[in-house]
Design a protein around this nucleic acid. Structure first.
Length: 558
RNA sequence: GUCCCAGUAGCUCAGUUGGAUAGAGCAACAGCCUUCUAAGCUGUAGGUCGCAGGUUCGAAUCCUGCCUGGGACACCA
């Protein structure tokens, strides 16, 4: 178990609970959960608890009096507590014996790449569906944020002990594919010099035009006057597979991979769309009106009922989507999570209604909304890609800023605030750029360790004395290292992967600070040098693991 | 009109699910390289947490109302 800090906390919590009961302040049943927090102020100790305030009502005593009683009954030695203070309205501040930190470095070095992994998720099966862009063109800015968020979120879930599956839902059945087919057709004909007009709602992007040109080159006039339906089927298939191929390629380059690519068309082929409607009908949530078939979603809090089958007999967008979610739920996940763009938020209520109508609890489905991204360059907002005239593509970003910076930037902010992507900053090789700042910390350590080797310093992970690590900056570093597993678990539980870049940045900052204050390789003090080398190795491991979760490189040299 | 998200330092954002004197980075100002990478560090300054009520020992955080910005409100996908 490499989560030394959590162990220490658990023991302390237990001892506090015991003390409360022994002091006769509350029975075990009355006892609220003991909450330990990490105070912002160093002067308030390593941990603090507000248990005395919480007990005020139960024990019918003043919080400070309660706090004193608890302290009097606490087994300080067992809880590794060095000293205790009662402060403010009744906080109990614990100053820990730092010897618990001594176990940390060997634990980290032993765990290696696994440091930061916990079993908080208890192997629960979670499925995350993200990106799921219509295969009708390039991925662009907003999709990229969703891709980065989804991917890092999955990494974090995995590290926290969840059994994660990544899925991409391919909308390959609806009208948008018909539109793609005719758009490709027009571009193909135009590429051959024929007179063809793009339909009003066709895809006018450069990406589709490229497919048309490619086709013209490969096939020449072959399809120009082929049989209408045959020709249509061909363009449809060709456009679809090429768009999809492009998406896969871009995502792969962005280091995003899926376990499962799920085709909407397969739902039709397997009769699952009909089956879903029947299921809802049998449960009594379906009715006919005005020649259409409706889903009584208002039963579950939706604003209005929704049409499943239109007057003309075709399905609405919602219907296959319900079938899709039904299919996902039947695959046995404890939880399914959708990552959607902000323009889809209005869709949540009806989907959750569908989940309930299918007989599942509402919270079986989680929806994460990714807010809009604005791209800035030279202080100005870019609306269009300079290259293609379309919305800025993921590919442009990767070229301009690199994959590392792009991924880091997209996940460093909470998903539900709009994000200004500063292209100049992402590109800059300076300390303003948080990606470089963190990577530099890693590289710095690697250089130090290399020199340590060259100079003949060695440090096996178990042959150093952790008690020599007493400088303020190194104790801070140790404490920060200890937080990593919980930060990751926290990020998973709160669906907040942005906590990882935040953590890694803080750790890098403390490393730089330590580096400037203390010398690691010191021939005058070989024993302390050994201990510090071990500390540096632990920091390097933790930084690398954090960067790994974000999906970016940890360079050894910069 | 209804719903969702946001509103915290000049700018970009955190804020440990209600805790102590609200924190980082950038920008500003003042310093630190003969020494393991200055792509770094140290310090100063900077705040009516959108506004007004309420809940309680205690509110940036929870509730109500309002203001501002963004988005969504199809028998489109």
């Amino acid at each position: 178990m490499s989560n030394v800090l959590a162990q220490t906390e658990d023991i302390l919590k237990e001892e506090i609970a015991k003390a409360v009961v022994q002091a006769g302040l509350a029975t075990e049943e009355e006892l609220p959960e003991v909450i330990l927090e990490k105070p912002k102020e160093k002067a308030h100790g390593d941990f603090a608890t507000n248990i005395a305030m919480q007990l005020a009502r139960i024990a019918k005593k003043a919080p400070r009096q309660i706090a004193d009683d608890i302290v009097a009954h606490l087994d300080q030695a067992k809880a590794s507590v060095a000293s205790i203070e009662v402060a403010g309205p009744g906080f109990i501040n614990f100053f820990m014996k730092n010897d618990f930190l001594g176990d940390l470095i060997p634990a980290i070095l032993e765990a290696g790449e696994a440091y930061g992994r916990t079993d908080t998720g208890k192997g629960e099966k979670v499925q995350v569906e993200f990106v799921s862009v219509n295969p009708t063109g390039d991925l662009h800015l907003g999709h990229a944020r969703g891709a980065a968020y989804g991917d890092v979120f999955c990494n974090v879930l995995d590290a926290a002990g969840y059994d994660v599956e990544r899925e991409y839902y391919i909308n390959d059945a609806g009208k948008q594919i018909d539109k793609l087919a005719s758009s490709v057709e027009v571009r193909y004909l135009q590429a051959l010099g024929h007179d063809a007009a793009m339909p009003e709602d066709g895809y006018r992007g450069e990406d589709v035009a490229a497919i048309g040109r490619e086709l013209a080159e490969e096939h020449g006039e072959k399809w120009a006057d082929a049989d209408e339906s045959e020709r249509y089927a061909f363009f449809r298939e060709y456009g679809l597979s090429h768009a999809l191929e492009q998406i896969r390629k871009d995502l792969a380059e962005f280091r995003v991979h899926f376990d499962n690519w799920f085709s909407e068309q397969s739902l039709y082929n397997d009769g699952k769309v009909e089956a879903a409607v029947e299921t809802l009908r049998n449960s009594g949530y379906v009715y006919e009106e005005d020649g259409a078939t409706w889903f009584r979603s208002t039963e579950f809090g939706d604003d209005k009922d929704r049409v499943l089958i239109k007057q003309d007999g075709s399905y609405t967008y919602l219907t296959p989507d319900i079938a899709y979610h039904k299919d996902k739920l039947e695959r046995g996940f404890n939880k399914i999570i959708n990552v959607w763009g902000s323009d889809h938020h209005g869709y949540i209520a009806r989907m959750q209604a569908a989940i309930q109508a299918l007989g599942y609890p509402k919270d079986k489905l989680g929806v994460k909304i990714i807010q809009i991204v604005n791209l800035f360059e030279g202080g100005e907002k870019l609306r269009m890609s300079k290259r293609t005239g379309n919305a800025v593509a993921l590919r442009d970003l990767m070229e301009e800023a690199g994959v590392d910076a792009t991924r880091y930037f997209f996940v460093m902010r909470s998903n539900d605030t709009q994000f200004d992507f500063d292209l100049d900053l992402a590109r800059s090789e300076s300390n303003d750029n948080p990606v470089f700042y963190v990577q530099y910390a890693h590289a710095r350590i690697c250089t130090m360790l290399k020199q340590a080797e060259e100079k003949g310093f060695t440090a096996a992970s178990d042959s150093f004395d952790a008690n020599l690590l007493t400088a303020e900056k190194e104790v801070d570093l140790l404490k920060k290292l200890g937080e990593f597993p919980q930060t990751v678990a926290d990020a998973a539980e709160k669906h907040a992967p942005h906590k990882v870049p935040q953590y890694v940045f803080d750790l890098a900052s403390q490393l730089h600070s330590f580096y400037n204050a203390e010398k690691v390789l010191d021939p005058e003090n070989p024993e302390r040098t050994k201990a510090r080398i071990a500390l540096m190795k632990a920091v390097r491991t933790t930084l690398a693991n954090g960067l790994g979760l974000i999906g970016i490189t940890a360079p050894e040299k910069m």
